[in-house]
Design a protein around this nucleic acid. Sequence first.
DNA 1: GTGCTGACACAGG
DNA 2: ACCTGTGCCAGCA
Length: 120
Amino acid sequence: MHPERTELTELVLDVVDQVPPGRATTYALVAEAVRARTGHGHARHVGAVMATYGAEVPWWRVVRADGTLPRPLRERAMAHYREEGTPLSPFVPGRVELRHALWDAPTCWEAPAGVRPADA
DNA sequence: GTGCTGACACAGG
DNA sequence: ACCTGTGCCAGCA
């Protein structure tokens, strides 16, 4: 079959789909995970993919490096965060507390035997 | 090929 | 916390 979606798109969606409920990752980290497989990929492209195909995956679990999302998206993500119990900043409404919620895909996948990221 | 756009990141102000 | 400018690079006109 002829992929309408590029390889990059498929990989991005695949990665985002694996972020567990109640946790979140960033555009840059998703890009890093994709880059580990394909050799290329950039946070900006992850955003581009999400803008088009985001509805197919738990898009609210991918946030900016500072834990926020653009205005309109932030509003819609709130319901999901509340339902999943995603850690949010007590000071900035709608901002994910990455300190507690971050899910680092690359380290989870690439961790060689015996080497594990220090988790909470 | 050229040029603009963007659900980003980062440094400044 | 907000906004601005710069770097980034795949997709699209």
